[in-house]
């Protein structure tokens, strides 16, 4: 039942996964090329890159639960690629906004980030992703130390929450269904972690140190940590 790929198989799985992560980008590139993204291709592209950022973030967050439920510990070896793919789509999403929506008008961009809460939230999510992407290498894990690296990378929960808030906030209320579905999926992914914590450590009031059962609590602390933690001691 428990499948354990050989190193060669794992390499093949990784290569296949890498090709799969390119598919959405290829789809949109082809759509631009063949003018099949509808009447407003730039909007479709911006939206598409945003949605795929969330999709890959969610896939990244699926790794731990899937690993626990299936016993396939090797799934962990795929997590970095999924996370970096989310970051790559986040970069493309940001790029479409900065270039195709604002045409590098620094004043307009600054005003937008300041005045529009959904853009503020999106920009914050992107900034929080940066240190995670920069510390994704084995060398970074070693130099940070596993514990510190792990607590830094808990910022991914904040990124996902901010990403969904960004989505919820930007749509008109008639179009709320899709972002609500994303919010529910995220609630399940984060809720599973809370339940696991409680199951392993008992109900949190009995513990001596406050556990991070509420994502909001550690989100704030980690958000600060993510921006303030130096790369090296």
């Amino acid at each position: 039942m428990t499948f354990q790929p050989t190193p060669r198989q794992l390499t093949a799985i990784k290569a296949a996964l890498f090709l799969l992560t390119l598919l959405p980008a290829l789809h949109y590139a082809h759509g631009l090329w063949s003018d099949s993204l509808g009447a407003n291709p730039i909007e479709a592209l911006t939206r598409g890159m945003g949605i795929w950022t969330l999709n890959f973030l969610f896939l990244t967050l699926c790794v731990s639960p899937l690993r626990k439920l299936s016993g396939w510990h090797w799934l962990l070896r795929l997590r970095r690629m999924l996370g970096l793919t989310a970051f790559a789509y986040g970069c493309l999403h940001l790029l479409t906004y900065l270039w195709l929506d604002q045409f590098w008008d620094v004043d307009a961009i600054a005003r937008d980030i300041w005045k529009r809460p959904f853009i503020t939230v999106g920009a914050t999510a992107f900034l929080l992703m940066l240190p995670l992407a920069l510390t994704s290498s084995h060398a970074a894990i070693r130099s940070l130390g596993g514990k510190r690296w792990q607590s830094l990378h808990r910022a991914v929960y904040a990124v996902a929450i901010l990403g969904v808030v960004h989505y919820l906030w930007l749509v008109k209320r008639v179009a709320l269904l899709d972002p609500i579905i994303y919010a529910l999926v995220l609630a399940i992914l984060l809720g599973w972690r809370v339940v696991e914590r409680i199951r392993l450590n008992g109900p949190w009031p009995t513990r001596s140190t406050p556990p991070a059962v509420q994502p909001v609590v550690f989100m704030k602390r980690d958000a600060a940590a993510a921006l303030g933690v130096p790369k090296k001691r």
């Binding site: 009447a39 407003n40 730039i42 307009a108 937008d112 529009r116 809460p117 906030w169 930007l170």
Partner: peptide, 13 residues
């Protein structure tokens, strides 16, 4: 939630 200063004419870049 957004600026109304500019617009994208459909079909224009």
């Amino acid at each position: 939630r957004w600026s109304q200063a500019t617009e994208r004419r459909i079909g224009e870049f």
